[in-house]
């Protein structure tokens, strides 16, 4: 049906066309910006892998550095990083998870708990170099652990603790309140509620949060450099237990810094290969976290 003025109804007018052009332009700009994020990642990874290619093989992982670190592999640094990450998380994960359970399930809104919350938030914002200095003062000197794996791990633990607390609280808070009410109303204590309902339904989120801290602990240089990681440590090739906990060790992040800037004449592909290994370690851990979460999620339904 035509309108009185003779126009056809419901067709584009010039104003509509102008709006559509703006719409298309806006969409393209936003899309381009989003795509721009991918480019640096691909460039970084691609560049690293290409430059690292000559050194990337199993030998490189298992071999110790040779000829004043200018050749050979990265085994002492790789195993050192694994030590540091495992010990630090073995300390921070239980403390962080239990603290988060207290804060989310037990704590009432009073000044004491507000202080704890404030401390958690602020601790998360402290730069890693400050953690490093704290670790140096507290663990190396005050606690007399010396420059050692234990000092470095504890420093990393302090650094990862607030983030684990925050992510655990988030996971706990995502468990519907109605489950807790159901428990309380048959006379369950808080601990029974946590044990039988809250934890089984938040464990995926909690574990994901903890595992994501692996990448952070593995990548940090300053905290471990100040407290227990050295340039070079002579160990056997492929030795799984080369370090005592009161000894210093090597770590990938520090090793990368050393061979890139401190040692002359390093074979060109070695620093790149070290970076690729560090990156791959982090990516693999994150992938493991994601698949674990997907698996645990698939088993819970509500």
């Amino acid at each position: 049906m035509n309108s009185a003025a003779g126009h056809v109804l419901f067709v584009e007018t010039p104003a509509v066309r102008r709006k559509l052009r703006q719409e298309a332009l806006a969409k393209w700009v936003f899309c381009a910006m989003a795509a721009a994020m991918v480019v640096p990642l691909l460039l970084i990874v691609g560049y690293l892998v290409v430059r690292a290619a000559p050194s990337l093989n199993l030998e490189f992982l298992l071999e110790v550095p040779k000829r004043g670190m200018t050749e050979g592999g990265i085994w002492p640094a790789l195993i050192g990083t694994i030590y540091l990450v495992f010990i630090s998380l073995a300390v921070s994960a239980p403390i962080g998870i239990l603290a988060a359970i207290y804060l989310n399930e037990y704590a009432r809104d009073n000044w004491f708990n507000r202080v704890i919350n404030l401390a958690v938030i602020n601790l998360a914002g402290v730069p890693s170099i400050v953690h490093a200095l704290f670790g140096l003062g507290a663990f190396v000197y005050a606690a007399k652990f010396g420059y050692s794996i234990i000092s470095a791990s504890l420093t990393l633990a302090i650094m990862t603790l607030p983030v684990i607390i925050a992510s655990t609280r988030e996971a706990l808070a995502s468990v519907p309140q109605s489950f807790r009410e159901a428990c309380w109303n048959v006379g369950a204590t808080r601990w029974q509620t946590i044990k039988s309902v809250v934890l089984p339904n938040s464990i995926s989120g909690i574990l994901t949060g903890v595992i994501l801290q692996v990448s952070r602990a593995a990548g940090e240089t300053a905290p471990v450099m100040f407290t227990g990681v050295v340039f070079f440590k002579s160990i056997e090739r492929g030795d799984l237990f080369p370090y005592y906990l009161n000894e210093q060790c090597m770590a990938l992040s520090m090793h990368l810094y050393t061979i890139s800037t401190q040692v002359p004449g390093v074979k060109e592909s070695i620093p790149y290969a070290t970076a690729v290994v560090l990156l791959a370690l982090v990516v693999m851990v994150n992938a493991a976290a994601i698949s674990l979460r997907v698996y645990l999620r698939s088993r819970q339904k509500w």
Binding site: S178, G187, S196, P200, N201
Partner: peptide, 28 residues
């Protein structure tokens, strides 16, 4: 709360099996 039970607006069975829901109170 053992003697005074409550039923809510939204049914809130626990994310457990039917069996475990019924015996939950006993277990607690």
């Amino acid at each position: 709360r053992k003697s005074v039970g409550m039923v809510f607006q939204r049914p809130n069975p626990l994310p457990l099996s039917v069996y475990e829901n019924v015996v939950f109170g006993l277990r607690v």
